[in-house]
Design a protein around this nucleic acid. Sequence first.
DNA 1: AACATGGTCAACCGCTAGTTA
DNA 2: ATAACTAGCGGTTGACCATGT
Length: 250
Amino acid sequence: MGRAPCCEKMGMKRGPWTPEEDQILINYIHLYGHSNWRALPKHAGLLRCGKSCRLRWINYLRPDIKRGNFTPQEEQTIINLHEVLGNRWSAIAAKLPGRTDNEIKNVWHTHLKKRLNKNQNNGGDTKDINGSNETTHEDKEPVMVHTTSPQQFSNSTTTLEISDNNNKDDTMSYDDISALVDESFWSDVVSVDNSSNNEKKIEAWEGLLERNSKKYSYNNSKLYDDDMEFWFDLFTSCRRIEAFSDIPEF
DNA sequence: AACATGGTCAACCGCTAGTTA
DNA sequence: ATAACTAGCGGTTGACCATGT
């Protein structure tokens, strides 16, 4: 492992791209693809470094880029995903087709973060992107961010090792979770009432999540990465993300 | 009209992880 | 095994523009 040599310093052009450069890059990639970014500018006749070409292509020239303002739905999705994923912009971008990590990062820093801070300062209750009051933990009508039935991740081979080293039984497979979170849970969660049954289920679920959140620290980043999809589904499907706001960030 | 301030966003920088020789 | 190299990521910067004074 080592750092790439800084070829950029040697006569490479920097700064904004011209339409001519864009066209050269587009034409070249259409003809030859971009298997080797480092060699690309030389072959294409561009006085840019490979990094710059790659960035320009990914963030601006790619044909599937969606231009224009973010919709309120997209913004809400970013907020929700950011709660789950943190500053993993590429992971967030993967959930928003046509949007780039750079774009999402910019939107977050320029709009969404401020808006959330403002909302939090307004009495501490959070609002959604449309400015309506968000329901809190105790509210009666939770909003499902994204619905996923247990079956949708039942093919996952994920096994959760719950961290308590002294407790060998503290390993939960998906089957264990399924037993804990039966079919009714998913429908119940959508319309949370105050029945003790549901409260117990939610408490059990949150306890599981809380313990896992301690376990899945950076020391377990590989496992964390492997299970990203699982956790995303888990968090977004289970109930409002706000319900887990007390869980420390991974 | 001139200047100051703040917001936006494209592009760059430095780092890490993965791959190759 | 390891050094060299590349791709990709997140943080930061700076140019440009709009708005306020």
